[in-house]
Design a protein around this nucleic acid. Structure first.
Length: 430
RNA sequence: UCCGGAGUAGCUCAAUCGGCAGAGCAGCGGACUGUUAAUCCGUUUGUUGCAGGUUCAAGUCCUGCCUCCGGAGCCA
């Protein structure tokens, strides 16, 4: 007999079907028992009556505790009393493996306990819903970029010194040479854009800072599109369409998962181009008017960013930053060289930065001058300067943090639940 | 790294002024044919984070250390 996915049970109403999965909850009530089983695609209630099963099967059910693996056959029926609207009336049950002492109860747990049991916690309703949404977001990102002519371009994870020269990196022994885990694939993506026109990287990135907040991981996934001939405005429009597409895909494919998370849908349904824009200079004025102690030229901190992200009800572009507080490769604004043609995209509902992007400097002399101003080692950047020696063109790109995007779309309090096994400060297992 | 908080049963927590270390849940045994974190009856569970100190007496007071949580900075 063919096995049906739990999420597809509705298409088999009235049929005798087989399901394979795990016991999520079990309620025994004399000669009838209710099991909610899960198979990874969803949850469904199984009704088991003693008189309809072999005595051996009924005993196995009684002995099986939560998370025992089971094979069930029975009639799929529509049933308003069942969670999810469908249930299976079992005619056959095999307990494939009987679990003893499942450590995660149905009551609440502290975060330390859950983190230590992350390998089991991901089986829960809430965590599996988040991970299914993450999957949709990943697929949507790749689909959108592919549909828009971007080629996937995988960049190295082991690199020589700092790509941007700012953050602390994880050091690796590369057979005697010092190497570092990549903090961004962007500089390589620029080379890719000159080769393939439009490219994107999608891979893990690493930051060794001792960050300890709800929005930081030491290992996280980033998608970095980079396009030749793209200028500042092209870049922002691409981002609007990109983010809108991702949100729409989740709304259409993960209705049940968003409901498990009790995620309000209205803020997501509002996500449509164009997104509001505010310059750094206007943002500083706005913050000052609202009691923040910031001066033009300061890097905006977390509370300031949260305020701005709450001020608008759609994702908002924060644009035209002072050149001094941004990366060396960003193109100065021709109308005001003190600021750069860069924009961060802040997610609403207080989430803050999910994207950082800019037009890149394509002029060789200007880039060299900036590298000197930022005290970068020119030797290590010769290949990067080559991109401005041989057929240089205007180009732009951005990096979007996958986990921050998942956290926002799922409306999570902490980024640690957006990735199967988060790597955080002093957190390496499981 | 800095600031703040916490660590007691498998889990979540309580324990008054320093005076017999407890409850709920889970587990185990039993009852129950429509349960939704089922309910009801019975029942087991302790190196109070670690090391030292004060005291007739320490979960509680003192010193040091460890771990975790929240926030800041850095950023996606």
């Amino acid at each position: 007999m063919e096995t049906v996915s739990v999420k597809d049970v509705g298409r088999h109403e009235g049929e005798e079907i087989q399901l394979k999965g795990w016991i999520h909850t079990k309620r025994e009530k004399g000669k009838i028992a209710f099991v909610v089983m899960r198979d990874g695609s969803g949850f469904i209630q199984i009704v088991l009556e003693q008189e309809k099963l072999e005595p051996e099967q009924w005993n196995q059910l009684h002995e099986a505790s939560l998370e025992s693996s089971i094979i069930v056959r029975g009639l799929a029926k529509s049933e308003p009393r069942a969670p999810g609207g469908y249930e299976i009336h079992a005619s056959f049950l095999e307990v494939f493996h009987t679990t003893k002492d499942w450590p995660l109860g149905r009551k609440e747990h502290g975060i330390e306990f859950l983190e230590d049991n992350r390998h089991l916690w991901i089986r829960s309703k809430r965590e599996s819903a988040i991970l299914r949404i993450r999957n949709t977001i990943e697929n949507a990102m790749i689909q959108f970029l592919s549909d828009n002519g971007f080629y996937r371009f995988d960049t190295p994870i082991i690199t020589t010194a700092a790509a941007e020269g700012t953050t602390t990196l994880f050091e690796v022994d590369y057979h005697g040479d010092k190497a570092y885990l990549s903090q961004s694939g962007q500089l390589y993506a620029e080379a890719g854009a000159m080769a393939l026109g439009k490219v994107y990287t999608f891979g893990p990135t690493f930051r060794a800072e001792k960050s300890k907040t709800r929005r930081h991981l030491l290992e996280f996934w980033m998608i970095e599109p980079e396009a030749a001939w793209f200028q500042y405005e092209d870049n922002l429009q691409l981002q609007e369409q990109f983010v809108t597409y991702i949100v729409k895909r989740v709304l259409s494919e993960n209705e049940a998962d968003l409901s498990i998370l009790e995620r309000p849908l209205e803020p997501l349904q509002k996500v449509e181009p164009p997104f509001p824009r505010i310059t750094y200079t206007d943002a500083v004025d706005l913050l000052k008017k609202n009691g923040f102690d910031v001066q033009w030229g300061d890097d905006l901190g977390s509370p300031e960013e949260t305020f701005l992200a709450n001020y608008f009800d759609k994702p908002v572009f924060l644009t035209h930053f002072p050149a001094k507080i941004k990366a060396f490769y960003m193109q100065p604004d021709p109308e005001n060289p003190d600021v750069v043609l860069a924009a961060d995209l802040l997610a609403p509902e207080g989430y803050g930065e999910i994207i950082g992007g800019s037009e890149r400097i394509h002029d060789y002399d200007l880039l060299l001058q900036k590298m000197k101003e930022f005290n970068l080692n020119e030797e290590q950047y010769q290949w990067y300067l080559d991109l401005r020696r041989y057929g240089s063109v205007p180009h732009s790109g951005f990096g979007i943090g996958l986990e921050r995007t998942v956290a926002w779309i799922c409306k999570l309090d902490h980024i640690r639940e957006t990735i199967p096994f988060p790597r955080m400060l002093h957190k390496l297992t499981p």
